[in-house]
């Protein structure tokens, strides 16, 4: 599921009040779309007159808040073992820093590792889409040139 930050922005109070961590309402909308923040973190949105918009936003971002409604699937028949997912995954880069420089993942701490010519998800539970992060990260899907990775 991909949320459009502009759609979320149009439902916000657009006051740029700086009462939340984001510097602007647009930045807050972007964070909402990624699942990085909750709509309840916008104080003006909790004020009278915005109930309908607040409910609408809550409805839109609800899938991002539940790990049960997300998943990552890798179709091995489409995978070329290019390693794009390994290098671009933020968890992999933190778990095995040489992957950030394009090196192959050699350890067991990454989300992805290319084994026998095909990428495997070896630690799905570390994916940032799942708790505790619950982020709407989908960079692996975005940079998989053969569409082998599917996120829902």
């Amino acid at each position: 599921m991909k949320l459009n930050p502009m759609e979320l922005y149009n439902l916000l109070p657009k006051t740029n009040c700086r009462l939340c961590e984001a510097k602007t309402c647009m930045a807050f909308a972007t964070k909402l779309a990624l699942g990085d923040v909750s709509p309840d973190e916008c104080p003006p949105l909790l004020e009278e007159g915005f109930q309908e918009k607040l409910e609408k936003i809550r409805e839109m971002v609800a899938p991002l808040q539940s790990a049960a409604e997300t998943g990552v699937k890798l179709d091995e028949s489409k995978c070329t073992g290019c390693g794009n997912c390994v290098v671009v995954c933020p968890v992999d880069v933190a778990a095995e820093p040489p992957t950030s420089e394009g090196k192959a993942a050699m350890g067991t701490a990454t989300v992805f590792r290319v084994e026998n010519g095909i990428s495997k998800i070896i630690n799905l539970e570390k994916c940032r889409r799942f708790p505790p992060d619950r982020l709407n990260c989908r960079v692996c899907e975005q940079y998989c040139c053969t569409d082998a990775i599917e996120i829902w």
Partner: peptide, 25 residues
């Protein structure tokens, strides 16, 4: 000429890490 890869022979099977599909084949 990827030099950041590894492999081992396990009986009749080869196991590799980091090799792409082309390299493993």
């Amino acid at each position: 000429l990827c030099d950041d890869v590894s492999a081992e022979i396990d009986g009749a099977e080869v196991k590799s890490l980091g090799l792409c599909r082309l390299g493993h084949a």
